[in-house]
Design a protein around this nucleic acid. Sequence first.
DNA 1: GAAATTCCCATGGTATCCCATAGCATCCCG
DNA 2: CGGGATGCTATGGGATACCATGGGAATTTC
Lengths: 159, 159
Amino acid sequence: MAFRSEILIKLDKKGRVLLPAAFRDELPADDRGAFVLYHSPNLAGVVNGNSRAGFDAMLDRLRAEALGPKGALKVALDDEAFDPAGYLSASARTIAMEPDGRFSLPAEFASVLDVTDGVMLVGKGDKFQLWNPGRWQARRDSDRDKMAAFVRGLGAGDA
Amino acid sequence: MAFRSEILIKLDKKGRVLLPAAFRDELPADDRGAFVLYHSPNLAGVVNGNSRAGFDAMLDRLRAEALGPKGALKVALDDEAFDPAGYLSASARTIAMEPDGRFSLPAEFASVLDVTDGVMLVGKGDKFQLWNPGRWQARRDSDRDKMAAFVRGLGAGDA
DNA sequence: GAAATTCCCATGGTATCCCATAGCATCCCG
DNA sequence: CGGGATGCTATGGGATACCATGGGAATTTC
């Protein structure tokens, strides 16, 4: 289960978006009809997506590693303390797909993405992202330079 | 598992390419039906390939070395920071083969390779590469000289 | 009832399945 | 040891299935 590739998908007049077959195939076999969209916790204008199981697994890791072994119990009782996993849950929505893999993009996501006729779907391995196509282009260009620098840095550190 | 040799393969009118038997045999026995293609991170016009397991192993090593022990959690949440493994995932595609070992080369790869009727498959040990045959010829010639110089350098350092 | 949502059918393009063949390499068996 | 016989590899091509998309009709929502 690893989301790869970047795919430009049409947003039609009815506000529908297709989750590409390449991504649908990465959803768990027993839960192909729905997935989760949630706002990026620290990058405005980006929406993250994952399978329900993948999203839940991330929350579990978050609670375990951020809060320690007693985290789960504490979170269940302590409403005063900040709970990052709870924060993400509130920003997330379960999205049901039609049998053909399409779904209607909730307006809250469409507006932060600022998309009107196309959405860029980007695989990030253990999750995927929705981007405004133009913004993704810019991000991608800047990442390309960072990647080249990163590779150069590996060589230097080695020697 | 080591990819060796250089093989020129036809690109037919339907855009199909054969993964040579010599390379298919190097794929893990339990995952022979598909592999991964991804753009070279720092060499334009070159496409890399590997088994799914080989690609994933590279990403794991990458994340381990690029980030600290808390890397996994940070990467899962931080969309603003540059993530080399995520960058490679976005540039990669899982390629399913027909039972006879052929696959259709996605247009994005065919265009950066600038191939029309033939692709050079080059084994690089732990991965393989796709090249435009002419460009590979040039690269190979230049590498031959570099290799000779490298071997001479070894002798000098020894003495 | 008007607007939005969901279901269903339609379509062009692409990818996949399947069958076919020529050229090698290997095997087999007396 | 020879000479077929077999099998696999790389390639071609027709038929079929699937993907992404559009749009009408039915259903829901307020």
